Simulated scan of single mutants.
Amino acid sequence: MKTDSIFYRIFQSLPSTFFELINQPASLADVYQFSSVEVKQLAFRIEGVFLPNTSELPIYFAEVQFQPDKKFYSRLFAEIFNYLDKTELTNNWRGVVLFPNRSVDTGDTERYAELLNSPRVTRIYLDELTAIEASSIGIETVKLIIEPESTAIAKAVEIVNNTRQQIIDAAQQREIIQLIETILIYKLPRLSREEMEKMFGLNELKQTRFYQEVFAEGKEEGKLEGKEEGKLEGKEEGKLETIPQLLALGLSIEQIAQALGLDEQVVRQAASKL
C-alpha cells in the first residue's frame, strides 16, 4: 500500500487528525498549514510539514514509515536539521513518526537516544491506537489502514456512514469517501460487486476516483492497442482487461458493454472466465 500518499491525503483533508494522534487539541489545525517543503540548496523535499501561522508554536515534521530501515533515523534527523538550518523561521520543532507496529521500528537509535527519549519526537504505532477514546472520522480512517482484511469492509461501511452523518460540506465528504475507497482498493484489490455496492451505491461509486480512472484507462488502452495492432482484436483486448475491475465496482454486463462499446456477449464470455 502507498501509505505515505494516503496519510498525506488524510492530513490534507482532515488536518485535525494529526493533532489528535499526538494528543493535542484538534482545534490546533486551524492555525497550521500542512504542506511539503523543499530545501532548494540541497534539492530535497520534506513531504509532511505542519507550519504554524505564529512563531510561538512549533513546526511539526510528520514522517510515515511502514518498512524496516536501519538508517531511518539518520535520514529523518538529517532532513529536519537541514531544513531548520536553511529556513529563516525561528519556531521550535517537533517530529512525529507513524509506524504500523513496533516491529517495523528497527532504525539505529543509539546516536539519537536523547532526541527519541525526549518530547522532541513522538513515535506512534497504529496498532496501539485503540487507546484513543471517542475516535474521530480521521482517526478511524487511519485505523482502517491496518484493519484486518476480515473486518476491513465492515469498518469502512461504518466510517462512510459516519461521514455522511457528521460531515456537512459535500466536497469534504466526497474526499473522505474517496480516501476510504483508495485504502480498500489497496487492501482488498478483489472486492466483490456486492461489497462495493453496499459501501457506496452505484450512483455514488461512479463519482469515485478509482471508478473514473478504470474507465479512462480502459478506453485509452483500447484506443492505443487498436492503433498499434491495426486490428479490432487489439482494441478489444485492452478493453477486456478492465472488465474484472468494472465488475468489482458493481457494474452489470449491460453497463460495461455500453460503456466500453463492446457486444454484451463478448463481455459476458470474458466475465465467465474470471
Rank of each mutant, 00 (worst) to 15 (best):
M1N: 08
K2C: 02
K2E: 10
S5A: 12
S5G: 04
Q12H: 11
Q12Y: 09
S13V: 15
S16Y: 01
L21D: 01
P25C: 02
A26L: 09
A26I: 06
A26H: 05
S27A: 12
D30G: 08
D30E: 15
V31R: 11
Y32L: 04
S36E: 14
V37M: 11
E38R: 13
R45M: 08
I46L: 10
E47R: 14
E47G: 05
N53Q: 10
E56W: 06
I59R: 04
Y60S: 08
E63G: 04
V64Q: 08
P68T: 09
P68G: 09
D69W: 05
K70G: 06
Y73A: 04
Y73I: 09
R75D: 10
A78C: 10
F81T: 12
E88F: 14
E88G: 15
L89V: 12
L89F: 14
T90C: 10
N91V: 03
N92T: 14
W93V: 04
V96T: 12
V97D: 06
F99H: 09
P100Q: 05
S103W: 09
S103T: 15
S103V: 12
S103N: 14
T106E: 12
R111G: 10
A113H: 09
L115V: 00
N117R: 13
V121Q: 00
I124L: 09
Y125Q: 06
E128T: 05
L129M: 12
L129D: 09
A131P: 01
E133K: 11
A134K: 14
I137G: 00
G138D: 03
I139P: 02
V142E: 00
L144V: 03
L144T: 01
I145F: 01
P148M: 07
I153P: 00
A154C: 08
K155R: 10
A156C: 05
V160N: 06
R164C: 05
Q165F: 07
Q166A: 12
I168W: 07
D169N: 11
A170V: 13
E175V: 11
I176T: 01
Q178P: 00
Q178A: 08
L179F: 04
I180F: 00
L191P: 02
S192A: 13
R193A: 10
K198I: 04
M199L: 15
G201F: 04
L202P: 03
L202F: 10
N203K: 13
E204C: 03
E204L: 07
E204T: 08
L205R: 13
K206H: 04
T208E: 00
R209I: 15
F210I: 12
Q212I: 08
A216K: 14
G218P: 04
G218H: 03
K219W: 09
E220N: 10
G222P: 03
G222I: 04
K227V: 14
E228D: 10
E229F: 15
K231A: 07
L232E: 11
G234H: 07
G234L: 06
G234T: 06
K235C: 09
K235M: 14
K235W: 08
E236F: 07
E237Q: 13
E241V: 11
E241M: 13
T242Y: 02
P244H: 01
Q245D: 11
L247W: 00
L249F: 06
G250E: 03
E254I: 06
I256K: 03
A257G: 15
A259W: 01
R268C: 00
K273A: 12
L274K: 08
L274G: 02
